[in-house]
């Protein structure tokens, strides 16, 4: 990656009624990248996408498209392709008419010839693998097919950026997975700069070149999926990217101790005193009592996709932690166990 900047979001602020949804938000989008805006609901990600599209306007800040200030540019002139969560296909138009809409809406002098539009619709139908569907109506299609048509419709106007608002949010799990892979393929083939909004971390991590993690209207971190997973900058990012176990710990001389026992986790220089240690379920291991950092009793366990997840009630704390182990022996409820921390992240308390 590392292309030039396609879109620059500069110090954007937006308030709805009295609730602030974006605070002084800045972000660069590189040309040709597939960027995920990841965040919980209410984090401002959809508002950001709509401001980039020109469907909403910021109170402060600027949107810059390829060097030109587009903040005041009306939506029609921004040349963005927007794909809505619920498709927003035109119900009374056939698939071909839907895809051709943007081309037909142009002024006569800029409108391609009929034959040219027809050819372009045909090419796009091939691209989304729905060649025989030109004369169907949206009501005759499945959710996944509708979303592919919506994408073709957005691509038809050759947008400089493709914006997708929770594009797979209304689809069931299997279709979602297929469409993810398919979208990645389309992106690899077209090289279209694409921003998509999601609250599903798996989707963001699997699909994107870079992930921007949002929380409460602020940008927490932006980086490749590997970067944000290996070096999360805050507990918020860490917690949002997957299940975590939170443990009171003590940092001293670059080492982190839990209940007086050293862990392999390394503390950043300068981080001294009481800290919070966060570990993923697979960074815990069952251990003999004299090696364990945590003690508790098994509450329940269940199996999923070849792994076993065990809930353990921590001794004295009244907290439950989830441990992931290979699917071998099933642990009975009530069994006393010790847990050893194999890795994790520490942040100031």
């Amino acid at each position: 990656m590392g292309g030039s900047t396609a879109i620059r979001v500069e110090a954007l602020s937006k308030t709805f009624d009295t609730a602030a949804v974006l605070h002084d938000f800045s972000l660069d989008v590189r040309a040709g990248e597939l960027l995920a805006l990841l965040g919980p609901s209410g984090s401002g990600k959809t508002t950001l996408l709509r401001i980039i599209a020109g469907l909403d306007f910021p109170d402060r800040g600027r949107i810059i498209f390829g060097g030109d200030d587009a903040t005041q540019l009306p939506v029609q002139q921004r040349a963005v392709g927007f794909v809505f969560q619920h498709y927003a296909l035109f119900k009374h138009m056939s698939v071909a008419e839907n895809i051709a809409y943007g081309l037909n809406a142009r002024r006569r002098s800029e409108r391609p010839a009929k034959a040219e539009i027809k050819a372009r619709v045909g090419d796009l139908l091939d691209l989304i693998k729905l060649s025989g569907f030109a004369d169907r109506y949206p009501s005759q299609l499945s959710g996944g097919q509708r979303q592919r048509i919506a994408l073709a419709r957005a691509l038809a106007v050759e947008p400089r950026v493709l914006l997708l608002d929770e594009p797979f949010g209304a689809l069931d799990a299997q279709v979602r997975k297929d469409l993810r892979r398919w979208l990645r393929e389309i992106h690899d083939r077209t090289g279209q700069t694409t921003i998509f909004v999601t609250h599903d971390q798996d989707e963001a991590l699997e699909l994107s070149d870079r992930v921007a993690v949002l929380d409460k209207g602020r940008l927490e971190q932006v980086g490749t999926p590997d970067e944000v997973q290996e070096n999360p900058v805050s507990a918020t990012v860490l917690k949002f990217l997957g299940d975590t176990i939170e443990v009171e710990a003590l940092a001293r001389d670059g080492q982190v101790f839990v209940q007086g026992r050293a862990t392999p986790v390394v503390a950043r220089p300068g981080l001294v005193g009481p800290v919070k240690l966060y570990a993923r379920p697979w960074q815990l291991q069952f251990a003999e009592a004299h090696e364990a950092h945590l003690h508790g009793t098994v509450r329940s366990s269940y199996r999923t996709q070849g792994r076993q997840r065990i809930e353990v009630d921590r001794e004295g704390e009244g907290k439950t932690v989830v441990v992931e182990a290979s699917d071998t022996a099933r642990l009975a409820a009530g069994l006393p166990v010790g847990l050893r921390i194999l890795g994790g992240y520490v942040f100031a308390d």
């Binding site: 469907l55 927007f82 927003a88 035109f90 119900k91 809406a105 419709r153 957005a154």
Partner: peptide, 10 residues
């Protein structure tokens, strides 16, 4: 649907 039409340049 109206928003979709506007983003398509209508």
């Amino acid at each position: 649907e109206e928003e979709a039409a506007l983003t398509l340049g209508a």
